[in-house]
């Protein structure tokens, strides 16, 4: 119980709860089925990507190409659905395959050449985005077929995208918590050299981390297309920052070593509620960026100062 209280996820969760109660009091429509469903559905793609980002941040890496990877997948899927080969099965397979490719390219470049992941993913970010823009010439792909939008149906009052997101969260949490791969990720983020000493294959772990995130981005593309019913290749620009912000707000340490899927889910909900709340309270949405930027700066500052203190303590010698 005490441990639970100490964790950052707990305090973020409490803030979220207070925020929700406050918004409900301010405007009872906030707590309506339609509004809640809206908030949840419109944040599923973000949430799926944030799950992958959590893996990457725990290894002390970062990926600023997630939004491009998602749109890369979304665009190809939309194009696929225009061909005779388009059916629900090929869509899912293609989403996984496309995400695998984009993620693996990131993973290969980062693990093989030891270059800062921001630089690599900044580069691939414009490559992925450039390719789909060239492919479509920037044209919107409208009126996706029925079987495509059926992915986001509501069944028994539960929107399917939310179900997918929950499934992905569960799988991701299980991977992180109960597999050798997941624990290697924490080990690497906690103490890179020691992980090497303990026989963790760093290159392989990094590669898999980015590839897994790529696959999730691919699936996020599928979900996004089916919710919107169309695909705008130049859309979702700058979403990568929201994804990073969601993970960081949920308690993931951007310097590596700490983070949980549960926390990230809370972070995603927090962002969704803030966005919704601003609309409800008639605050212009452009305040969001300012607030998210500030949140990132402040939490990272706290993490760095904490780490510094712990490091200086480690270097102290015993005086008798």
């Amino acid at each position: 119980m005490k441990k639970l209280l100490e964790r950052r996820e707990t305090s973020v969760f409490l803030i979220l709860a207070v925020l929700c109660i406050g918004l409900t009091i301010y405007s009872p429509t906030f707590f309506s089925y339609t509004n809640i469903k809206n908030v949840l559905v419109s944040n599923t793609a973000l949430g799926i990507m944030a799950a992958g980002m959590t893996f990457i941040l725990i290894t002390a890496g970062i990926d600023v190409s997630v939004a491009s990877q998602m749109m890369f997948s979304a665009t190809w899927l939309a194009l696929l659905s225009e061909t005779p080969f388009g059916n629900p099965v090929t869509l899912v397979l293609a989403a996984i395959l496309i995400g695998f490719v984009t993620g693996a390219i990131n993973g290969f470049l980062i693990s093989r050449f030891d270059i800062h992941p921001i630089i690599i993913t900044l580069g691939t970010n414009s490559i992925y985005r450039g390719i789909i823009l060239v492919m479509t010439n920037g044209r919107w792909l409208m009126n996706l077929p029925k079987y495509f939008t059926a992915f986001s149906k509501t069944v028994f009052g539960i929107p399917l995208p939310v179900v997918y997101a929950v499934l992905i969260f569960l799988v991701s949490a299980w991977l992180l918590k109960h597999t050798y791969f997941g624990r290697s990720i924490y080990a690497m983020g906690g103490n890179r050299e020691a992980a090497r000493y303990a026989g963790v294959n760093l290159k392989k772990t990094i590669f898999f981390t980015y590839t897994y995130t790529g696959v999730l981005c691919g699936l996020a593309g599928l979900v996004l297309d089916s919710i919107l019913g169309n695909c705008q290749p130049s859309g979702s620009n700058g979403w990568e920052m929201n994804v990073i912000a969601a993970a960081v707000i949920g308690g993931t340490n951007i310097l590596g070593g700490y983070g949980t899927i549960g926390g990230t889910v809370i972070g995603v909900l927090m962002m969704g509620v803030i966005e919704n709340g601003l609309v409800v309270a008639h605050v212009p949405t452009y305040w969001q960026k300012l607030v998210y930027g500030l949140i990132i700066i402040v939490t990272v500052t706290i993490d760095v100062l904490r780490k510094k203190k712990a490091d200086s303590k480690k270097q102290m010698i015993e005086i008798d």
Binding site: M241, L255, G293, I296
Partner: peptide, 23 residues
């Protein structure tokens, strides 16, 4: 002063400045 890795620090301020400009 604080010692945040430059890429991370400026990724944060990137968003902050953009937000400030929008506001």
């Amino acid at each position: 002063v604080i010692g945040i890795p430059p890429m991370i620090a400026t990724l944060g301020t990137q968003m902050f400045f953009y937000g400030a400009a929008l506001v």
